[in-house]
């Protein structure tokens, strides 16, 4: 059984959108749908690093989201290594670090939302950022789905 782990800095924005695209919960950019996605904008500091199960895809791949801040590469190595130690096979873990899919709107939005606690304007900028990256994000998820 494959575990597909979508990860971004906070784990609840790009990762949540990518997981939703993977599971067919959304197909196009839709503000209303995205804001109501499971875990969207809801993972705080004490949840960083923890995996959250979002659903199972048609190939029985288990889809998770998580926050790995800027250490996606380290987390990927750790999880693949653990999978190897427990005889699940390194290939059973597909780790997708979405940090490169962020952009200036997204980064500023996250800062305003998370650090300044200005939720409305933060969310607006985050959504603008997601909208700008949406096409690339969708392509990435489609490639991942093919590999699963």
């Amino acid at each position: 059984m494959k575990s597909v782990i979508y990860s971004c800095y906070y784990g609840s924005y790009l990762a949540a959108v990518a997981a939703a695209l993977h599971l067919g919960l959304i197909d196009e950019f839709d503000f209303g749908k995205i804001i109501n996605l499971p875990y969207f904008g809801k993972l705080g500091k004490c949840q960083w690093g923890k995996l959250y199960f979002v659903g199972e895809d048609e190939s029985r791949g288990r889809i998770y989201i998580m926050s790995s801040k800027k250490t996606g590469r380290v987390v990927e190595k750790a999880l693949k290594g653990i999978a190897r130690i427990y005889n699940m096979g390194e290939d059973s873990v597909i780790f997708v670090d979405l940090l490169p899919f962020g952009n200036i709107f997204f980064a500023v939005g996250c800062f305003i939302f998370q650090k300044l606690n200005l939720k409305r304007i933060g969310t607006f900028l985050i959504m603008m950022g997601i909208k700008k990256s949406f096409k690339k994000l969708k392509e990435k998820v489609e490639n991942i789905k093919k590999s699963v």
Binding site: S3, W48, G49, K50, L51, F53, R62, Y64, M66, S67, S68, K69, T71, V74, V75, A78, L79, I82, A83, Y86, M88, V93
Partner: peptide, 16 residues
Amino acid sequence: QRQLVKNAILSFLKYN
């Protein structure tokens, strides 16, 4: 990021 990586490992194992 020791706490973050530990969280990742432990939650991954629990889900499995």
